[in-house]
Design a binder for these strands. Structure first.
Lengths: 211, 211
DNA sequence: CTCAATCTACGTGAAAAGTCGTAGTGATTT
DNA sequence: AAATCACTACGACTTTTCACGTAGATTGAG
C-alpha cells in the first residue's frame, strides 16, 4: 500500500506542529506540507500530489468552507477531512453536501485521527462517533425543510458586519444600500441558519470562522 | 537545573497530544499530567508537584479564568501560562491582574512555546510578541478608566444566556427575576466589557470561553 | 428564451434592545 | 457605624430588531 500524502491546514502553529508530531510515527501516513490558511492550501494542492487534506474550519484569509468548495472544484481526487472545535449537525450536513469526506472534532483521540485518515483515503467517509450521534438525532426529526443552505457572498458579508456589532443602518451606509435591504438579508440569514435573533447569527459567524 | 514539571489543560485531545509531542524531546521539560477541564486541573494540582500550568482559556466545566483564580488562591507556587486563540489587550490585562505568568497564542511556534515555559518557570512573565505589541498600543491610550473588571457570578450567568439567544424576558423567566433586572445586568455588562450591543457581548462570551 | 437565484427595496406593526436615570436590600468589609 | 458591592427593580424614552409580506433588476444556467 502506498503512503498517504497529507496536507495539514490550520492557522494555529501549535496544532499544526501537534498534528505533525502525532502523525510522525505512523509509517503509512506522510505529512507532505502544511498551510496556515485556505489560500496557501490551494496553492500547495496545485503543486503537490495530495491524498487527504486535514483542515480546520475556522481560519482567516480563506475559511474552511470556501476552501472546501474550491478543492472540490479544482482537485477532485483529494479527500478533505474537516477538523472542528464544535459538534453541530447543521454544519456537518452542509459539509457533507459540499463533498467533505470526514468531520473530526479536535477533542478526538490520536487513534481516531489516524483511523479516520486511513478510512477516508480509501474513498470512505468518516465522522466522529459523537457527530454521527447528533446527525442521527437530527435526521429523525420531521426533516425535509430543515436542510442547511449555504450563504451567498452578500449574506456572508453582511453577517460579518452584524457580528461586528453594526446596526442595519450602519451596515447599509457602509455597503451603500438601504437599511431595509440589510434587514431583508438579515431575515434571510436567520431563516437559513435557523435561528431567531442576532445572538444566533453571531454564534454561527464566530463558530464557523466567518469572523 | 531541575526538570520543569508541567500540567497541560485543554479540552481538545489533539491539542493535548500535540503539546505532549512537541515537548517530548525537550530534556528539561516534563509533562507530568494533563486535564481536559479546570476542575480536573485543580484536582491534579492537589496531587502533584507542578511548576507550570499550560492552560487553554476556553474550556467547558470550569473555564480558564475561573481556574486561574483558583490556582492563584490555592497553589501560589505554580505558574500559569494561558494558551489562547485570540489576541486582545483587554483580556490580557485582566489575566495579568489575576496573576497569570504568561499568555501564548496558539499560533505561536514550538520554539516560542518552550522558551516561554523556561522563562516563566524561573519566575518571569512571558507574553507573545504580538501580544506585547497590542498591549503597548492600548496602554499608550488615555487609559486610567479603561481597566477591564471581571464579571460577577450573576453577570456571567446572564451573559451565557444572552449568548444563547434568549431575550431579556426569557432570561428573567428562567432566573425568576424581572426582565427589567436582566436589562440592568445587560447594561452593566456592556459597560464593563466596553461594547454597545449584543454583538459585542456575544463575541466576548464566545471568545473567552463562557459559552 | 425561460427559470431560478441573488440582490435590491419597501410597508406595517409588535417586540426587544438600548439610554438615560433612581433606588432598596442584604452581605461583607473597613 | 459606615462604606462598598452584588443583586434586585422600575420609569420614560428612542432606536433597532423581528415577522409578516411584496416585488423589480440582473445574471447565469439550462
Amino acid at each position: 500500500m502506498r503512503e498517504i500524502h497529507l496536507l495539514l491546514v490550520d492557522d494555529h502553529q501549535i496544532i499544526l506542529d501537534g498534528l505533525k508530531s502525532l502523525l510522525s510515527n505512523q509509517e503509512d501516513i506522510q505529512v507532505l506540507a502544511e498551510a496556515n490558511d485556505g489560500r496557501e492550501a490551494l496553492r500547495l494542492l496545485g503543486l503537490l500530489q495530495i491524498d487527504v487534506v486535514l483542515m480546520d474550519i475556522d481560519m482567516p484569509v480563506l475559511n474552511g468552507i470556501d476552501t472546501l468548495k474550491e478543492i472540490r472544484k479544482l482537485y477532485k481526487e483529494a479527500k478533505v477531512i474537516i477538523l472542528s472545535m464544535h459538534n453541530e449537525a447543521g454544519m456537518i450536513k452542509s459539509l457533507m453536501d459540499l463533498g467533505a469526506s470526514g468531520y473530526l472534532l479536535k477533542s478526538c483521540s490520536q487513534h481516531e485521527l489516524t483511523e479516520a485518515i486511513r478510512w477516508v483515503s480509501q474513498g470512505n467517509r468518516y465522522f466522529s462517533s459523537d457527530v454521527t450521534l447528533s446527525l442521527l438525532k437530527t435526521s429523525s426529526e420531521p426533516s425535509g425543510e430543515s436542510r442547511t443552505e449555504m450563504l451567498t457572498e452578500r449574506e456572508t458579508e453582511i453577517l460579518k458586519l452584524i457580528a461586528g456589532g453594526f446596526s442595519n443602518r450602519e451596515i447599509g451606509d457602509k455597503l451603500f444600500i438601504s437599511h431595509r435591504t440589510v434587514d431583508t438579508h438579515r431575515t434571510n440569514l436567520m431563516k437559513k441558519i435557523q435561528v431567531n435573533n442576532i445572538a444566533g447569527l453571531i454564534s454561527y459567524a464566530i463558530r464557523y470562522g466567518l469572523v
